[in-house]
Design a protein around this nucleic acid. Structure first.
Length: 629
RNA sequence: GGAGCUGUGGUGUAGUUGGUUAACAUAUCGGCCUGUCAAGCCGAAGACCGCGGGUUCGAGUCCCGUCAGCUCCGCCA
């Protein structure tokens, strides 16, 4: 590796590099052959080949296979077994005429028995070819078998397109993972991680591990705590991300760092949130945000190219946070379909509808959403949407049907004919549509309509990847509950330099040097340029309401490090689980994790979390408080 | 913390306005069967309906509570 390489990564260079790689496919997509690769080819083994990769060319060869018994088709004197291993399935034939002892043994085979067999690969006759099986042109005539292990009857079928309670799948996750489609997901994940490592290595990034036992910090999510035996009443915290360590590595002069890093957050779960998850964590010095964009765009292009054979359009679109909220009602807009929010504040102010007028007078917004062909909705559908909007914080939902004669709506009496026409025309609505309106604070209006937009999205959305960068996030938001400013990203995010003068006077107007990478409505990750001088960092901590003592106690080491020649630096982190789920087309990241936890953060297989022995608690000097009602 | 959905043989489902022997498929076990590949045919066994309480002459079905799973809101820099 050329350690001194600091050349700029231009987009042209990226594209040409990518093109070159496409001509040498196989670099990341490893081709696995039917014949097993073994470190000691002379050693005696139960298995010489993978089941699913055998084909016509192996006909006539003597081979050994080992795996699990799938389906069994018993014809009396002739038994077919689907033998399954990591690679696929191969039909075994046990023929009574080839020896009674072996045949009798084969009659005892049941689902999921582990067996090793040997015999000759034989071409099937034309009428016996199974075209739906990759190995359907051949079969193995077994003349020797070892039953390596028996199996209880499995609680569910080991097959794709499974329809069982997720309880069961999680309880017997090791059986669930035997299913080919689950194996495929693990393989996809492996390959994606390998692409990441190779790509980062190519640009001189150094993979560095950081501690899992670290200290709790006040910002961010709830920490998972680990009690210390050696230090009474002290706790480690599991990292929410390697954020501080990667910045410290920049002070160390690593310049280009990455890590496939496990992170922990003790918050409530979602389909795309687990208590422990994996990030592709990246940090750079002397690099700048333009290079970061290019680096990540190149990485995404390589992943989609190598794993999906799809060529992405580069560079990705960039959209300021404000625009994303205004047009799509989300800071992670799904650009696969239109249905943009339309501001009708100026028109709404001319109506007599008090709800609209009050919202505007108090500095809020009135926006609308056009649901094409929405007139098929029933009154109950609209009631459901209203309830949905209320749950999201709106005071209500106004709506109108658009008919050839005009509006049909409970609020039409507040609008004169011209105004209704004007609104209809601005929203480009036609007869047969429904218009939905929300009037509230700007933020609530955008958010609620953004959720409605997703909920009412057309059903035929493309799967094609629509990437974008969301930029120009505000540095702070106001936390009404805590009555203080809070970092929108994290407290190490650098403000835009031109906004520095208003930092103390108008914190909410300060923009951050922060960016999120968004794909099809999913936040893949985000990052920022960091503060690299201790003065600015101290100003931010002060604004966040941290006292000097607290700052010193919790972040003293960071401030100190920044005072020893910290380089300008910045980076980002990508959710690996979400990335893989998007690549595999899964809704939930549980599908792409080997042993995920339930929505209540428990592991149905191991029973974690669980009570521990009194002895362990005593060593830690921990006493369990009785539950209070 | 809140809301919604789900919970019936091993598994997936059905179960009418409450009515007594809880149905079907598949898996399992036994028998027959030499070209199947979701093999087929015959037969057997298997659930007191998540758990607890209540209403009723009678509850899988109605009510209350509770547990578990899933989805969403809050939360998650």
């Amino acid at each position: 590796m050329d350690g001194g390489n600091q050349e700029e990564i231009t987009r042209e260079a990226l594209f040409s590099a990518l093109q070159q790689e496409s001509s040498e496919a196989g670099e990341t997509e490893k081709v696995i052959k039917a014949e097993l690769t073994l470190p000691d080819p002379d050693a005696d083994v139960d298995k010489t080949h993978y089941c699913g990769l055998l084909d016509r060319s192996h006909a006539g060869k003597r081979i050994k296979l080992a795996g699990w018994v799938g389906r069994r088709r018993d014809h009396g004197g002739l038994i077919f077994i689907d033998l399954r291993d990591r690679s696929g399935i191969m039909q075994l034939v046990f023929d009574q005429r080839l020896g009674l002892e072996l045949f009798n043994q084969s009659e005892s085979l049941r689902s999921e028995y582990v067996i090793a067999v040997e015999g000759e690969v034989v071409k099937r006759t034309d009428e016996n070819i199974n075209p739906s099986l990759p190995t359907g042109e051949i079969e193995l005539y077994v003349d020797g078998m070892k039953i390596l292990n028996k199996s209880k009857t499995p609680p569910f079928y080991i097959e794709d397109d499974l329809n069982v309670d997720e309880n069961l799948r999680l309880r017997y996750r090791y059986l669930d993972l035997r299913r080919p489609e689950m194996l495929k997901r693990l393989q996809l994940r492996h390959r994606a991680v390998k692409v990441v490592r190779d790509y980062m290595d190519k640009y001189d990034f150094l993979e560095v591990e950081t501690p899992l036992l670290t200290r709790s910090t006040p910002e961010g999510a709830r920490d998972f705590l680990v009690p210390s035996r050696m230090h009474n009443s002290s706790f480690y915290a599991l990292p929410q991300s390697p954020q501080l360590f990667k910045q410290l590595l920049m002070v160390s002069g690593i310049e280009r760092y990455f890590q496939i890093a496990r992170c922990f957050r003790d918050e409530d779960l979602r389909a795309d949130r687990q208590p422990e998850f994996t990030q592709i964590d990246i940090e750079t010095s002397f690099f700048g945000s333009e290079n970061l964009y290019a680096l990540l765009e190149g990485l995404m292009a390589k992943l989609w190219h190598d794993l999906h054979g799809v060529k992405l359009e580069l560079p990705f679109m960039r959209m300021p946070y404000k625009e994303a909220m205004n047009r799509f009602g989300s800071d992670k807009p799904d650009l696969r379909f239109g249905m943009e929010l339309i501001d009708i504040g100026d028109l709404a102010s001319k109506s007599n509808f008090k709800v609209f007028k009050t919202a505007l007078e108090t500095g809020g917004s009135v926006k609308g959403l056009r649901v094409a062909g929405g007139s098929t909705m029933s009154r109950k559908d609209l009631d459901d949407l209203t309830l949905f909007a209320r749950q999201l914080g709106a005071k209500g939902l106004a709506w109108t049907f658009i008919e050839a004669e005009g509006w049909r709506s409970p609020i039409s009496k507040f609008f004169d004919q011209d105004l209704m026409l004007e609104i209809t025309s601005r929203m480009e609505a036609e007869a047969g549509d429904v218009l939905l309106f929300v009037a509230d604070s700007w933020e609530t209006t955008c958010q609620v309509l953004g959720h409605l937009r997703i909920r009412l999205a057309p059903e035929d959305i493309t799967d094609e990847p629509h990437f974008l960068w969301v930029i120009d996030f505000p540095l702070f938001h106001y936390d009404a509950e805590e009555k203080r400013y809070d970092s929108d990203h994290h407290p190490f995010t650098a403000p835009r330099i031109e906004d520095l003068p208003i930092l103390e006077n108008d914190p909410l107007a300060v923009r951050a040097q922060a960016y999120d990478l968004v794909l099809n409505g999913v936040e893949l990750g985000g990052g920022s340029i960091r503060i690299h001088d201790s003065d600015t960092q101290a100003r931010i901590f002060k604004l966040l309401g941290l006292t000097e003592e607290e700052t010193k106690e919790k972040f003293g080491f960071l401030l100190e490090a920044l005072s020893y020649g910290a380089p300008p630096h910045g980076g980002l982190a990508l959710g690996l689980d979400r990335l893989i789920a998007l690549l595999s087309g899964d809704e939930s990241i549980r599908q792409v994790m080997s042993f995920p936890k339930t929505a209540a953060a428990s592991c149905l297989m191991t029973g974690a979390p669980a009570f521990v022995d009194e002895k362990q608690l005593n060593e830690l000097k921990i006493q369990i408080k009785p539950l209070e009602e």
